[in-house]
Design a protein around this nucleic acid. Structure first.
Lengths: 130, 130
DNA sequence: TTAAAGCAGACTGATTTAGTCTGTTTTTAT
DNA sequence: ATAAAAACAGACTAAATCAGTCTGCTTTAA
């Protein structure tokens, strides 16, 4: 089946910790996150950077700095996180394939992609932390 | 989002053709399949070989040989096809990770994997060809 | 002013992908 | 009988992606 990348795996772990600290508004540094879940610091920095660019988290600098979710965990779903980290491209390059018009599977992938997207959208961070 | 491999992409294309020829019991050679959908012959041979090992198709040798689905298209779903080609491993290596007990995401991936599996199981070849 | 944090980008070894190539076996048509 | 056409098997490879690492800069609170 689909193997998820380490990027996504670590990213979700970090987001779950941030979700648990959302109510108390406790900022979490990358150091804290990486130690708590034993994830490589340098790599995690880059991952969080992606999540920040898509405005799922917000960082604050300085010695008491760290990251916070930008919104309630029930407003962030797994599709948001994966899209942020892996980009928003479709499952196949079908739409850009020169023989798309003739392709026997052109509608199949549309259906499959839509179903999977819907499924991932229905799973929120809030559900995952309770 | 999830990028599907060429292996799966070609595999599904081939399976859709086979599904359309199922009622008439028309065998399709790899040559026929690869020319019809412009897929690399040698690569497709390997792909079909996987599908045969998981008993989704059955080959017959000789100069009129080729492949047939082993069962009705409404009995074959997209998960069957992807599992056959990509293996049946889970989305993450979580279950085999030494720190699984402590891992904050251990149940999250179980939930996500289950939801996606169910979604892919609900899409059959029969649906895709009508 | 210095330490701790965020932020940015170049670099790299290892693995996976997407095939290709060569060769064998089986079966049908001539 | 034999040639042709198909399945079947496995070794090999260039290119791309993955999973980080490393270096260095900027911002901010103590």
């Amino acid at each position: 089946m689909f193997q998820v990348t380490k990027k996504v795996e670590y990213g979700l772990r970090a987001m779950i910790i941030l979700a648990k600290n959302y109510k108390a508004k406790k900022v979490c540094s990358v150091k804290f996150l990486s130690e708590k879940e034993e994830m490589p610091f340098d790599f995690l920095e880059k991952i969080i950077s992606c999540l920040e660019k898509s405005k799922l988290v917000k960082g604050s600098k300085g010695s008491t700095g760290g990251y916070l979710l930008t919104k309630n965990p029930n407003k962030i779903n797994v599709k948001n996180i994966i899209s942020s980290l892996e980009g928003t491209k479709a499952m196949t390059n079908c739409p850009f394939c020169p023989r798309n018009k003739k392709c026997i599977a052109k509608n199949a992938w549309k259906k499959i992609d839509n179903s999977l997207s819907k499924t991932l959208q229905d799973i929120t961070l809030a559900q995952l932390i309770k």
